[in-house]
């Protein structure tokens, strides 16, 4: 029974890794195609949105993973997500004001997701340390 649960957990991790790799691959492929080829508008739109379906799939896999967490991991994940979400908003607001005040250059906000991931890791470590 325990072996069965372990196998199920491994399968979930493998699925998450495979979908992550697929999402990463389509993101790189889409970037490369848009940079090196001139497409018509409909094809350009299709290529631009190519990475979105694998990312939506990854998103579904992640939510299923969160639902299957035990009580302690749920608490840690909740605090990490809350920290990261509010922290991201703080970074966005502060940078936006510094931009308006002329202290920092105009940035492309599409690059905000590494900040989200970084804050999630910090939030996770704080929560994990708290519940250790």
């Amino acid at each position: 029974m325990e072996n069965c649960g372990h196998r199920g957990g491994m399968r979930a991790v493998m699925l998450m890794l495979s979908v992550s790799l697929l999402a990463g691959f389509t993101a790189v492929l889409s970037s490369w195609l848009l940079k090196h080829y001139q497409f018509g508008a409909p094809l350009r739109l299709a290529v631009a949105l190519l990475p979105v379906p694998p990312f939506i799939w990854l998103f579904v896999v992640l939510i299923r993973g969160v639902r299957a967490l035990d009580e302690m991991m749920q608490r840690i994940t909740l605090e990490a997500l809350a920290f990261s979400f509010v922290g991201t908003a703080l970074v966005v607001v502060t940078y936006g004001y510094l931009q308006r005040a002329g202290f920092v250059p105009q940035e492309n906000w599409s690059q905000v997701w590494p900040v989200m991931v970084g804050l999630y890791i910090i939030g996770y470590l704080i929560a994990w340390w708290r519940y250790k």
Partner: peptide, 18 residues
């Protein structure tokens, strides 16, 4: 909300590139 935001930002980034 969290991964949706990442997907939405990513989608916007690729629409901008296109």
């Amino acid at each position: 909300a969290f991964p949706s935001l990442a997907v939405a930002i990513l989608g916007c980034e690729y629409l901008r590139k296109a």
